[in-house]
Write a protein that binds this DNA or RNA. Structure first.
Lengths: 107, 107
DNA sequence: ACAATGCTTTAGTCTATACTAAAATGTTTG
DNA sequence: CAAACATTTTAGTATAGACTAAAGCATTGT
């Protein structure tokens, strides 16, 4: 059920997942943010997709990827702690504040 | 703070950790339970120890290893789910029952 | 139709590391 | 002290898989 650890242990793969954990990004966008060739990124994305860990939405010639968070099970929180660390708390506060602002706008 | 995923992703290493997650075992014991040579197991144990993920207690010629659970941080629960799965719940119940029995004995 | 764009696929190289077999280290027993 | 035992260390090999460069495949624009 949980993804094989070895599968997501590789740093580049984690970096990719981190980038698309919270929002969709195009393959090109991702490739730009990661210090390997576009080809390599595409291969990782393909593997992650095959494993059900990311989802793809095609739109014209753009390919939009996003993490399939539910597929990570108990690993999700661990990864989030690794990637977003203690900031998680701060982040939740910021998001709550943003929601407050949004609510204020619509009122 | 959390251990590098790649470090514990390897199946043999996980098997070793799983064996010493809940109780100490001797190097020989561990090696017997794992389908590689004693030497290979010893190497893994050495690496895990160097990384602070297991602790060693020497007693004569025996070397007793145990997982240093706290060192795994948020990864601990994820590993437990991987290794002990939904059984975790059942297991906790069984342990509670055992404690009940133990209490009954001492009364 | 052709070129440009966004991405994937293929073929091949290179490196990290898990592993084995054997020698070495340290400890207990007779 | 020698032999047996428990484990570690060393040296060397083999393999997985991350990566690159280049070719291939769709889609859009002119």
């Amino acid at each position: 059920m949980l993804p094989d650890l070895a599968f997501i242990a590789q740093p580049t793969r984690q970096q990719i997942l981190r980038l698309i954990w919270e929002s969709e990004r195009s393959a090109g966008d991702i490739a730009e943010a990661v210090p390997v060739t576009f080809g390599a990124v595409s291969q990782h994305l393909g593997a992650l997709r095959k494993a059900g860990l990311v989802r793809l939405r095609r739109e014209g010639r753009m390919h939009w990827y996003a993490a399939e968070r539910e597929a990570f099970g108990a690993l999700g929180p661990a990864l989030e702690e690794m990637w977003f660390g203690k900031l998680g708390e701060l982040k939740r506060l910021a998001e709550a504040e943003q929601r407050r602002i949004d609510r204020a706008k619509t009122n």
